[in-house]
Design a protein around this nucleic acid. Structure first.
Lengths: 225, 225
DNA sequence: GTAATAGTGTCTTTCAGACACTATCCT
DNA sequence: AGGATAGTGTCTGAAAGACACTATTAC
């Protein structure tokens, strides 16, 4: 009972930044500048800066800003990965966060970040493969009953567009009537009055945006049951 | 870019040990031996021991063993709480775990740990109130669609007993037919052949236990959709 | 007009809750 | 026998999917 002060533990955050490109869920990776695994593609991450960050959520936002050059409205804690062997530098704790952005947001960020389809990941350092798998599993699971996928859709969007996003994430077709009923009862979207998406050789579609009241609370919504 | 090595961060684990007593969800607290908040009731927790623990899950199991004197078959990572102000000693990261045990298991542990109803918590140090609230919310949410509450029920148990546990956790009555249909299709329980619970002035009830295949995987089960 | 997709009305199927009935114990 | 709870069959209403139909654009 005399060694409460344990040897230092390495404290980091890692961010799984997901987006949708060509109908596929993809994760943003960055090339590591320093050892270990210098030059390797890995999740954007870094040490917690106790002097700058108020908490790990702020650390994750900072990492995202520094390494991917963007802010993500959706940034949720995923899980914490830890242990003696996951990092060659020593015993480490990595608080992992999951960010979702529409592809348009990533395009603004100069395209510095390589995107890799989550179903075809290359070998990755640390336990980043496991972290990504956990994030994808979580996103797919939550998409079954929540409005989470709207974060992958740039506003304004049409209902057919949003449905396509849901279908891409879930990997299966969704009934159109059921989908619209669900969106309607979630009461989370509002039509942009007078704004229709034209251009196609067919009836134009109503454009929608997320109601202000739901802008920030989406990540907090548990199940609606 | 020259201060990668941030000032030391305090790394701890905290365990929310929940059980069911008198039809109420209760959390086990321990009296702190050391500052800060010495003598106060708080969640069992402690530093990560990098030399002993393989990961934070092991740290949580050790804390549970040392401070509550028991092993919990169900021990799942809850979330990580962090920041500059939650601990007066400095910037800290607390990986919180949630454990569920039947009341019989706690009784074996000499009753050293005070139990407090989660709906009537006293003021608690750190952000332990928030951690407990998060755990309770998670357990209630998961209980709606998963078999998680079986961990609160000592084996063997009858279906009416298990239903009462569900009802206590969820705080509402459940339809008997629906409950049995759900348990049946989860295919997670098996009857203990020939074992009935007698003694009541009524028809005896079939005793059940969790199938071996589901013993360990319950905490991993996401939604069954 | 024709092709193509948006959007809606309605039928069908599926699932959860309500209810009632039987079963089996103790007293 | 009577009371009490275990366990089951069946009806009903709500929700989800299937399908078909109308609406509106470009060409």
């Amino acid at each position: 009972m005399n060694n409460d002060r344990a040897p230092a533990v390495i404290c980091t955050v890692d961010v799984v930044l997901l987006t949708l490109e060509q109908g596929q869920l993809k994760v943003a990776l960055v090339r590591r500048e320093r050892a270990p695994f210098a030059q390797a593609l890995a999740l954007p991450g870094g040490y917690i800066h106790a002097q700058d960050d108020v908490d790990t959520q702020a650390s994750a936002a900072r990492v995202l800003r520094d390494k991917a050059g963007l802010d993500s409205p959706y940034l949720e804690q995923l899980a914490t990965f830890s242990g003696a062997v996951r990092d060659p530098r020593g015993w480490s704790v990595a608080v992992a966060y999951c960010a979702l952005v529409p592809p348009e947001t990533l395009a603004q960020a100069e395209g510095r970040v390589p995107l890799v389809a989550v179903d075809a990941l290359p070998p990755l350092p640390f336990d980043h493969r496991q972290i990504i798998d956990t994030a994808v599993q979580r996103v797919r699971s939550k998409s079954q009953y929540s409005s989470l996928p709207v974060h992958l859709c740039a506003e304004p969007f049409t209902l057919p567009q949003l449905q396509a996003v849901y279908e891409a994430v879930l990997g299966e077709a969704i009934n159109k009537v059921s989908f619209r009923r669900k969106m309607d009862e979630l009461a989370m979207l509002e039509p942009v009055h007078g704004a229709l998406q034209t251009g196609g050789a067919h009836r134009p579609a109503q454009l929608y945006r997320v109601r202000a009241a739901y802008r920030r609370s989406l990540s907090l919504s548990a199940r609606g049951l």
